[in-house]
Amino acid sequence: MIDRPETPVGRRRQRWRVAIYGSFTVGIVALLAGVGIGFDLVGAIGYFLGVTVGGALCVYACVLGSVTISDERFAAIERRASHYTLLGLAYAGLATFPALFVLEAAGRFAFSEALETLLFAFSALFLVWGAVYTALRIRS
């Protein structure tokens, strides 16, 4: 259940978050729609505009203005969402890729270029995560 902000500050924070994340969402949808219907340039322009507007709103709200976009509760939710997303990707990769390696060794499967790229992306993601985690552990 999503709780609705009851205070003027909470409503103001929600409006800014909707404006910022809505702008990013519109940009991403524009890119996907443009690519999907064959207008890659139009989609890229829509994406650029959405990200630029969202970034400008975020800079204004967080740096130049007196708006606080998030509080400790939002930060805790974002940490949990990131944690569960990474765990889900890790478990999916751990369950899938070793089986594909075995199938490839048995001659029943061949890695495509896209799947190989996905494997490298997964590997890079978790190497970066591990490096950041290690650096944070050392600092604490």
Rank of each mutant, 00 (worst) to 15 (best):
M1R: 14
M1F: 09
I2T: 11
P5M: 04
T7A: 07
T7C: 13
P8I: 12
P8W: 11
V9N: 04
R11Q: 10
R12E: 15
R13S: 10
Q14A: 12
R15H: 05
R15M: 15
R17S: 14
A19C: 13
I20M: 08
Y21A: 10
Y21H: 09
Y21M: 08
Y21E: 06
Y21T: 10
G22M: 02
S23E: 05
T25K: 02
V26F: 02
V29W: 06
A30H: 06
L32S: 09
L32H: 15
G34P: 09
G34E: 05
G34L: 08
G36K: 04
G38S: 10
F39V: 06
L41T: 11
V42Y: 06
A44E: 05
I45T: 12
G46S: 04
Y47M: 04
F48P: 14
F48R: 12
L49R: 04
L49G: 07
G50F: 12
G50M: 06
V51F: 11
V51H: 15
V51D: 10
V51Y: 13
G54I: 14
G55Y: 05
A56S: 14
A56N: 12
L57A: 11
C58R: 13
Y60S: 11
A61S: 08
V63L: 15
S66F: 06
V67A: 03
S70T: 08
S70L: 10
S70R: 11
E72Y: 10
R73V: 10
R73T: 12
F74W: 12
A75M: 05
A75Q: 13
A76N: 03
A76R: 01
I77M: 11
I77Q: 03
R79T: 12
R79D: 08
A81I: 04
A81E: 08
A81F: 04
A81T: 06
S82G: 14
S82V: 03
H83Q: 09
Y84A: 10
Y84I: 13
Y84D: 13
L87A: 11
L87I: 15
G88I: 04
G88Q: 09
L89V: 02
L94S: 14
A95M: 14
A95V: 13
T96Q: 01
P98Q: 01
P98R: 01
L100C: 01
F101V: 11
V102K: 03
V102I: 08
L103H: 07
E104T: 09
E104R: 10
E104A: 15
G107A: 11
G107K: 10
R108Q: 07
R108V: 02
F109M: 03
F111S: 09
S112C: 01
A114G: 13
A114D: 09
A114H: 09
A114P: 04
L115M: 15
E116R: 01
E116A: 01
L119R: 00
L119S: 01
F120Q: 01
F122D: 00
L125C: 05
L125T: 02
F126T: 04
L127M: 07
V128S: 07
V128W: 11
W129K: 05
A131N: 00
V132I: 11
V132D: 02
T134I: 12
T134W: 05
T134C: 08
A135Q: 14
L136E: 09
R137G: 07
R137D: 11
R139W: 03
S140A: 15
